[in-house]
Design a protein around this nucleic acid. Structure first.
Ligand SMILES: [Mn+2]
Ligand SMILES: [Mn+2]
Ligand SMILES: [Mn+2]
Ligand SMILES: [Mn+2]
Lengths: 218, 218
DNA sequence: GAATATTTTTAGGTAAACCTAAATTTTATT
DNA sequence: AATAAAATTTAGGTTTACCTAAAAATATTC
């Protein structure tokens, strides 16, 4: 069965929202895709006809088993290409999302099979997100928000979320990247900033803004 | 300036037809693209408005300087991806065209820059066709049709054209590939087959059908 | 050079993916 | 429970890229 680029983007986005919010609404999806609610409604009907989502008018919706499988395939393609861009072409992690957003729609299954093998079947993309394997299985690693981590406990950064701006400059300045070991010494409620401590470096203050996008293993 | 996937395909195809026929007509383009003449006319008007082609109704048309530049960029992307698919992912030369047909439309310039560097700035794609460099320059190597080559003269295969079917099986059977040294002993006008001689192999007969798609340096 | 054939364009449609504005349904508030 | 607010859908457009069938222009043939 053929799915258009738009259909793939919708399915993938439903998958992501479902993963973090548990439930998906027309407006949430419209927001995530930068589209208007009316456009989303139209597409929802199309996706339902293709048996990719469970949808009743005016109600929240969810992916069907099939929809989930397709979503995982697109996510797999996206993350494998991101891995390729960073580890083979030398891009930095914050530059690859938009390119992968296009490459994820190249349709050849054989291509992805071979790409995966060529990259050594990586389990995580450059942002620390798990790459679904051929069967859609994800290596489950808990991503704990740095803002919620217990005080004075050493943790390891395992994921960084891109948020539009150029947060990566800041992270580079602090020398925080995936694999960095650090602990949170204090949390300042006033501006929700944190004092963190990294090996061989004096304690540093980071804003809640940044901390929100840093995840780690406890 | 943005060009859609369709616009890129049209421009590239005009470039190819121009290269072999010298001149491009609505019907020729429609045939090459698998579209109807009416659709082509419509697109021609769009391409003219974008100053990519020189076009007068009912007349043959040609690429403008800008059109040529864009065409070369798409050709460059196509052939670099083909090279990647064969030399990095292990595809065989006859499997890569359709995949590259999709990948050539990924828009990032930086991506192609880096891909080129990663591949070692190759000058020829897996079919033996030259890859335009960043400035659109092509390494000119004369591709002589094996059917036209002088008799009893050793030549080297430098290009193989894919023609839908599975000619590659035949070529593999004869062990003919890019780089193969051979000479044409005889030409049989009756069915336009050729007797060829390769190093360390007894003479063999190949059909005109196949020979037409083999090119070499004299 | 007129008649015929071929090529190309125009006219009029369709489907996908978007949009705005208005109507409808659901949810929240008094 | 009635009303107000918010979310969602429907109605009616637009643009892109296709299509078929008919008309117009160009080329070929007698
Ligand atoms: Mn995408
Ligand atoms: Mn990622
Ligand atoms: Mn293409
Ligand atoms: Mn090629």
């Amino acid at each position: 069965m053929y799915f258009s680029e738009s259909e793939e983007n919708y399915i993938k986005e439903i998958y992501h929202i479902q993963a973090v919010q548990g439930t998906v609404s027309t407006n949430a999806l419209a927001g995530a895709l930068g589209a208007r609610a009316a456009s989303v409604t139209e597409m929802l009907k199309k996706l339902q006809k293709k048996k990719l989502i469970n949808y009743k008018p005016y109600k929240n919706f969810s992916l069907t088993e099939l929809g989930n499988r397709i979503a995982l395939e697109v996510v797999r393609k996206h993350r494998l290409w991101e891995y390729f861009l960073v580890h083979k072409l030398g891009f930095s992690w914050h530059e690859v999302h938009d390119i992968a957003e296009e490459m994820e729609h190249v349709s050849s299954r054989e291509l992805i099979q071979r790409l995966d093998h060529y990259l050594g079947s990586p389990a995580f993309d450059p942002h620390g997100d798990p790459i679904p394997d051929k069967n859609g299985k994800l290596k489950a690693v808990k991503q704990n928000r740095l803002t919620d981590v217990p005080l004075r406990k050493w943790v390891i950064v395992n994921a960084l979320k891109e948020q539009g701006g150029n947060m990566h400059q800041l992270l580079k300045h602090y020398d925080i990247h995936i694999g960095t070991r650090l602990k949170v010494n204090k949390r300042f409620d006033f501006d929700s900033s944190l004092e963190i401590k990294m090996d061989k470096l004096p304690p540093a203050i980071i804003s809640g803004e940044v901390a929100k996008n840093i995840y780690c293993t406890i």
